[in-house]
Write a protein that binds this DNA or RNA. Structure first.
Lengths: 121, 121
DNA sequence: CCTTTGACTTACCAAAAGTAACTTAATAAC
DNA sequence: GTTATTAAGTTACTTTTGGTAAGTCAAAGG
C-alpha cells in the first residue's frame, strides 16, 4: 500500500478508487451519517432531515446504497405507502469513519474558513 | 452533536455539511491521499499518478485545496514552468482519516461487490 | 367524486466535469 | 533562424450529473 500507490491509483480495481468513486457523489455519505444517527427512518423523514436533497436524488442515492449493501429497504404494503430504511451491519461499520471525518471537519472549519478568506484577497 | 442533528443538517453553518460539500467533489480526497503518500509533487506528477483526472479538474481541485489551506503551491519562475505542491499541516492532519476510510474500502469491497451482483438480478 | 397522503417517476433545465485544442517563453534540434 | 519541445496551465465545447416541478398510484375521509 505504500510502495506501488501509482499502480493502485491508475488501476480500475483499486479498492480505494472503486469505493471512493461511489461515495464521491453528493449525498451518499450524508445519508449514511443521518441513518447512523437516527436508526430506522422513512423516506420523507430522511428528506426533511437533510433538508436540501431532491426527492429524485434521495431515491437514487438510497437505491445505490441498497445495491452496495449499506442500507436495507423495507416496504410496507399500505396506502399511502410506508418505506423504512436502515443501515446494514456493513453500513454501520462505516459510520465511525465518517464520524471521525466529521469531527475533523468540526475541529478545523475555523482554520479552513480563515484560509478561504485570505485566499480571496 | 447527538441530539439536534436535524438542526445541524439543515443549517448552512453545519461544519460537517460545510466541509463535506467541499470534499464531496470528485477529486479532492484523492489528491490529498496522493500528496500524503508521496510528499512534494509537481502538477504532471499528480496528474499521472491519479491517471484519469483531467488537467482542468486537477487545476480546479488544487486551487480549491490551496484556498482551503490544505495544500501549498510553490511556483518556480523557470521555463518550462515548475510548480510544486505539498500538504500543509492541516492537510497532513486529514490524511489518517482518509487512510482509515481507504482501509475500510479495502476490507469491504468484496462484500460490496457481492451485494451489487445480487442486486442486479 | 374530490382531496389528501407518501414514496416515488418523468420531462425538462442548470451545474459540474470531461475533451481537445490553444497559450507561453526559453531552450534544443534541424 | 525557423521549428519542435516542455510544464502548467486556459478556453470553447460536449457530456454527465443533479435540481425543479408536475404527475402517478390507490385507499380513506369529507
Amino acid at each position: 500500500m505504500e510502495k506501488n500507490i501509482e499502480k493502485f491509483m491508475t488501476s480500475t480495481d483499486c479498492p480505494v478508487r472503486n469505493v471512493l468513486d461511489r461515495f464521491g457523489d453528493k449525498w451518499s455519505i450524508l445519508v449514511v451519517l443521518v441513518l447512523g444517527e437516527k436508526g430506522t427512518m422513512r423516506f420523507n423523514e430522511i428528506n426533511k432531515t437533510i433538508g436540501d436533497v431532491s426527492q429524485k436524488m434521495l431515491t437514487v442515492t438510497l437505491r445505490t446504497l441498497e445495491a452496495d449493501g449499506l442500507v436495507s429497504r423495507q416496504v410496507f404494503p399500505e396506502i399511502p405507502p410506508r418505506v423504512e430504511y436502515e443501515l446494514t451491519h456493513l453500513g454501520i461499520s462505516l459510520v465511525p469513519h465518517i464520524h471521525n471525518l466529521a469531527a475533523w471537519a468540526n475541529d478545523n472549519l475555523g482554520e479552513i474558513r480563515t484560509s478561504r478568506e485570505k485566499f480571496k484577497v
